[in-house]
């Protein structure tokens, strides 16, 4: 039962990682100076023009403490917090009171997932195909040119790429809107088209951002793999360049790239923050930014735990499916 043992081991590791991650996100903000409740109350007071009585302030403080789960000593709070996380209950959002945080996150999730999963896959496919061809024919001049493009694109920070794309395609050549507008109401053909049109710029920047790394990594892998003895053997057998490139080189060079793909799918909620804020795109990242601005801690915590959960789950899935892709891994062999 080697397999069962492996799966159980991985799963325990997964739970441990989740537990420590959630614990750290609980304690860290509490070590920081500043108090969310005081922040919020000073906001309310500023709006009310100092007209709140001391009792009203105290009442507000108590009800906030209850909502945030900040009653009792820190260990009681921690226990309650863990219990709520397990039930996926992050309490009500403050900005959209009494809407529960989980509902808000569920509403925002399809936007982020739709945009980021599509672009991550596209960027992976295009980047790896180009990297494979450039690596397999690495002596050609155009392969070098492609590599230079990858080298220039890869280190550029995401927000810079986004700004350049906005300047070029939304400002100087006004092909696309500066910020998206989505039609309300049920999904119709028109709505689908408008979503694609309005998501085009954020999608383009995300594809460009992932593209450089995929090209460089795949090229390096393909160059290394094509010198392997089994590829030489296939060449002597008289296979075509095309067959060797796809069936021999790609299938082996693909493995580390699958790791990268699954991990980057796990990081989508993290990667979405910059995109969504820069493009005012209504997903998890935008929710997180708005919650941070409004001091909506329940919502922020919910979003963070969602990101931790998705990264850890991606790593777990990777560990579990890897033996399927790589025949060289034999469990307990």
């Amino acid at each position: 039962m080697k397999l069962a043992q492996y799966v159980v081991q991985r799963f325990i590791g997964y739970l441990l990682v989740l537990f420590i991650g959630i614990t750290i996100t609980f304690f860290l903000p509490r070590l920081m100076p500043g108090d969310p409740i005081n922040n919020y109350i000073s906001q309310v007071q500023a709006r009310a023009g100092q007209s709140l009585s001391a009792e009203a302030t105290q009442q507000l403080r108590d009800s906030l403490a209850e909502l945030y789960g900040l009653q009792g000593d820190i260990f009681t709070q921690y226990r309650n917090y863990l219990a709520r996380v397990v039930r996926l209950d992050f309490g009500p959002s403050f900005t959209y009171y009494p809407e529960p945080v989980s509902n808000i996150l569920l509403d925002a999730m399809p936007w982020t997932a739709g945009l980021l999963i599509t672009t991550t896959l596209l960027s992976w496919l295009i980047g790896n195909s180009i990297g494979l061809i450039a690596g397999y024919f690495n002596k050609r001049r155009w392969a070098t040119i492609l590599e230079v493009v990858g080298i220039i694109l890869y280190p550029i920070p995401y927000y810079i790429l986004a700004l350049v794309v906005i300047l070029l395609l939304a400002y100087w050549i006004a092909l696309f809107p500066l910020s998206p507008t989505f039609l309300p109401g049920p999904m119709t053909w028109n709505k689908a088209v408008s979503i694609i049109y309005n998501s085009f710029l954020p999608a383009l920047t995300l594809i460009l951002a992932g593209f450089g790394w995929n090209v460089l990594a795949m090229k390096a892998l393909a160059v290394a793999t094509k010198e392997d003895a089994y590829v030489q053997f296939a060449r002597l057998k008289g296979t075509t360049d095309r067959t060797r490139m796809t069936n021999y080189v790609f299938r082996n060079a693909m493995l580390p790239q699958i790791t990268a793909l699954v991990l980057s799918l796990g990081f989508i909620f993290n990667g979405a923050i910059q995109t969504e804020v820069i493009f005012s795109y209504p997903g998890i990242g935008m929710t997180m930014r708005a919650a941070a601005g409004a001091g909506d801690y329940n919502l922020l915590y919910g979003a963070i735990i969602l990101t931790i959960f998705s990264v850890a789950t991606a790593a777990l899935i990777l560990d579990l499916i890897y033996p399927l892709f790589d025949p060289r891994i034999r469990l307990g062999g």
């Binding site: 996100t25 860290l28 903000p29 920081m32 500043g34 108090d35 969310p36 922040n39 993290n270 923050i273 997180m288 930014r289 919650a291 941070a292 601005g293 001091g295 801690y297 922020l300 915590y301 979003a303 963070i304 990101t307």
Partner: peptide
């Protein structure tokens, strides 16, 4: 996100 939370606090 961690930096965002801390920044908000």
């Amino acid at each position: 996100p961690i930096l965002i939370v801390l920044g908000a606090i």
